[in-house]
Design a protein around this nucleic acid. Sequence first.
DNA 1: TCGTGCCACGTACAAATGTACGTGTCGAAT
DNA 2: ATTCGACACGTACATTTGTACGTGGCACGA
Lengths: 132, 132
Amino acid sequence: MTERPSLSKSEMEVARVLWEIGPATVREIHAAMEQRRLIDFATVQTYLRRIEGKGYACSELQNRARLYTAAARPKTVIRETVDDLVERLFGGDSMPLVRHLIEERGIDSDEIEELRSLIERLDSEKKQGGES
Amino acid sequence: MTERPSLSKSEMEVARVLWEIGPATVREIHAAMEQRRLIDFATVQTYLRRIEGKGYACSELQNRARLYTAAARPKTVIRETVDDLVERLFGGDSMPLVRHLIEERGIDSDEIEELRSLIERLDSEKKQGGES
DNA sequence: TCGTGCCACGTACAAATGTACGTGTCGAAT
DNA sequence: ATTCGACACGTACATTTGTACGTGGCACGA
């Protein structure tokens, strides 16, 4: 299934914005990105073209401007990306990454609370047979 | 400080093995990697050369064979890598990644237990003023 | 109708990456 | 002395990535 080349780092940055602000024109994506870092319009345009070429988005001309729409769900891309990272950096074990994230990058009280309930939920799901 | 180019995915894979089996020769690294995936000896050799070129390792000839030693701590590289990923894929917020990891990739009971206590620890550390 | 701004689209191009070959050398076994 | 196996090391080369320029069309205001 869906065997497409993975997104490069920069492409992923653009894809994220596309997911966030929904179907959007190059200019809109560019505007959204400019707020975070300096980047040329044409560069964003190229990234979008490549993202579409790789099958992660599709586009159509909406009177004079090309409108891009995501063609892959964030969840899928995130899974592929993270799986790869975990594989290469931790040999497939994801716990070290989880540890790193909650130990090295601060989490605030709300997040601690969220994690706590998330864990309780998983735990009880596990205790009374869950589907695979 | 330490402004070095980041490691590519494949280089990271090699670096991980280097950290794992300590100072090692190309052959040793190669052997360790072959167990997981097919890869050419010369390719590993090139990766190691590049890793050293980027400053993440150093090497010396140990009678006939070049012995590589890591020059950067895993923790540092992991931080840089993960920071970048979180930035590009989640706009800097790491919680989505944590959620993804514990929800989408299964964690077993032991890990749930570990997480639970990890969280409790962080929580209490937070409650009674901890250093930054 | 002429200019001007906005954008699509083709093209460019250096650097990084993935992947490896070939040559030369040194030490060990024959 | 000859051969062979192991490696280092230089080199190669197609792709991918990051980053952008330039050309040309079209719509809108002057």
